[in-house]
Design a protein around this nucleic acid. Sequence first.
DNA 1: AGCATTTATAGTCAAGGTGACTCTTAAGGA
DNA 2: TCCTTAAGAGTCACCTTGACTATAAATGCT
Lengths: 245, 245
Amino acid sequence: MSTPKAPEGYDRHAFEPFAVTVDLAVLTVREERLHVLLVQRGQEPYAGEWALPGGFVLPRESAETAARRELAEETGLAGAIVEGLHLEQLRTYSDPDRDPRMRVVSVAFTALVPGLPEPRGGGDAAEARWLPYGSYGPLAFDHDRILADARERVGAKLEYSCLATAFCPPEFTLGELRQVYETVWGVELDRPNFRRKVLTTPGFVRAVEGPPRRTGGRGKPAALYRAGEATALHPPLLRPEGRST
Amino acid sequence: MSTPKAPEGYDRHAFEPFAVTVDLAVLTVREERLHVLLVQRGQEPYAGEWALPGGFVLPRESAETAARRELAEETGLAGAIVEGLHLEQLRTYSDPDRDPRMRVVSVAFTALVPGLPEPRGGGDAAEARWLPYGSYGPLAFDHDRILADARERVGAKLEYSCLATAFCPPEFTLGELRQVYETVWGVELDRPNFRRKVLTTPGFVRAVEGPPRRTGGRGKPAALYRAGEATALHPPLLRPEGRST
DNA sequence: AGCATTTATAGTCAAGGTGACTCTTAAGGA
DNA sequence: TCCTTAAGAGTCACCTTGACTATAAATGCT
């Protein structure tokens, strides 16, 4: 229970205090690859190395609030973007030795964003950038593990939720939506079957009215869709085999 | 990121320290009802009211370690039981006002246990008891919400994992396993169909050799099974309709 | 003892979802 | 113009699932 009662033999204020932070695994799909939002650390330890954006939870903030604030501060993403972000708690990392200096418990979040608002460094971060998943050396702290957990979680949620639309702009083609699945799962999906599955799932997507069509790419222009009101995917859209990548 | 850098204008040690606790939602199936392990609080606030077992994370502990220790302390469950427990992080609750006295961030865990080791109070808890889910007044703090989240999560995990065996003793009948699903989901399942699904899923259960059979109840004796090595359920075992209860 | 009840277990059958394919249409590029 | 690329329509067989029937083996009642 949450009783602030110190264990036998200890005075509560004699404890080394815990610091509570948030870490954000912000993912996007870009050029057919999964990208991660990373910041370059400005100070020791791990100065100059890549890390997940994040920072301290303030005394009057919830972890969710802190996550949004830190994301805006460190990446310069517009407030409106950060407000509307699909933010989800991943898990909490509490290994006593995860920070070499002091006891830090960190609540990790996952965010999925469409397109490519180019970030800029700010606040605590010397620089902020989108980097392809895995294209960097080891990250600071236990952030490699956090990121791996985030990817795993997102991959699983694509199966039984309509979350994939969070990776897409407000209007998107079924090809773009399929790209999300293929990129996160690291597999190729059959176009007609994917189309059938998405369109026969009630509320997954809604067709945009006067058939505008996307231009620009090769091939036949595709119809545009918006995210539907459904959030769950029943029955699920299972990834083909043992997970790849 | 986890950088212990205080925000502008603050010295790190000027912060009101955070307390970090763990809360445990320990669930079992008993007499065809979902039961929850609750403790009666010994002190203010909420003295005398029911709450989830849990307590402080010590300076050199991870949240997982603290969860097991607190569970053993407050419920008197045998160390061996607590060791082997299926313990899973649920999420972290960080609302600044969730504890009336000070800033407490709590990492919640879910545990699924078989049968009925009767608990006894201990440590911080005046009493510890199994109570049917929902059969109590409002719990202390935000524990009602934590418990609701736990139930929701467990219900969802039954669909796509082999977790249901964690509710069963080492050897169990398919009827007992089916009871788990029916109790958690609050629905009735078709016996032959459930049997087929479980038996055709590779690694879900293994038949116990020399056909011993369970006696005691009414009806034809059932064959015994053990949990198999599989952890995921592909394809999933979906609950019938919109979730009940 | 005999019968109803309860539960386990073995099947059957049809509907629906899925994977593997084929074919046509409509764009851009060489 | 022809080739390439991708969208979108449609087919077919297989597998899973839900609904249901039937039989076996125990208990409890009368």
